[in-house]
Computed example of a mutant assay.
Amino acid sequence: MKPFEEMEEAEANAKKAEAEAAANAKKAQDEATAAVKKVWDFDNGTLAKGATREAYDAATNKVNAVTDEALKTSLNEALAAAEDALTQAEQTAAENEAKQQAVAQASIEQKNALNKAKSYLDYTAFSYSGLVEQLEYEGFSNESSTFAVDNCGADWNEQAAKKAKSYLDFSSFSRDGLIEQLEYEGFTAEQAEYGATAVGY
């Protein structure tokens, strides 16, 4: 083979290798992006529906193979957000399971206190401490009342908002006055402020 032919072949092989490397890099980027989308919803900035720890681990491995540093950084940021959200979801699931087990093993009085707590919340709003006090007023022990309120599933910010609305339905309050009234009802300062903000203050 003549020297110039050898040079052309070497150049062709180099270009072929370069093209294959680029194709492999693009494939790795596409696979990594697709894998991350299985755990992180880029459009909504939330955990993807059906995301699992296994899918997160798989995505992490795919991202490690990416050579484009800008894309890798972006995907790793999404993975970090997904990891935080997954951890929170796992903690919530564990807490819910623990609550379900606690309710399943509860005494008759605790179960009745829980049913009573839920029935109260069906027609009016309570703070955490206010509901405990109401159950104790009904004759339940502090232990059973606390158990019921811990396991009733109430969102205390939402309860503060409902209570704030009920106050404004029959009377007028300044923002500070409404917050003070909510705190008097047993809501924390943060919950009271949330309630006032929720009704437009």
Rank of each mutant, 00 (worst) to 15 (best):
E6C: 08
N61I: 15
K26P: 13
E193D: 14
G50C: 01
N115P: 05
N151T: 08
L168F: 01
A102S: 04
A89V: 00
L182I: 04
A19G: 05
E136H: 07
K49I: 07
A65F: 05
Y120L: 07
N157C: 02
A89P: 00
G139R: 05
Q159T: 02
E54I: 12
A106S: 08
E143T: 09
A164M: 01
K38Y: 06
T92G: 06
E83H: 05
R175D: 02
Q191G: 03
K62L: 08
P3R: 09
N44K: 08
E90T: 03
S129V: 09
G139L: 04
N44S: 08
D122G: 15
A85M: 10
K62E: 10
M1L: 11
G45H: 08
A58W: 06
A55R: 06
A189F: 07
E31D: 14
K49P: 03
K165P: 02
Y194M: 04
K27V: 10
E31N: 13
L121N: 09
L47K: 01
A93D: 12
Y137W: 14
N64S: 14
F173Y: 13
K2E: 12
A17S: 07
L86F: 07
A51H: 01
A48I: 12
D41R: 08
L75F: 03
K15Q: 12
E69L: 13
T60S: 13
A70P: 04
F147E: 00
E9G: 10
L75T: 02
G177A: 01
A81Y: 04
A198S: 08
E8K: 13
D84P: 01
T124A: 12
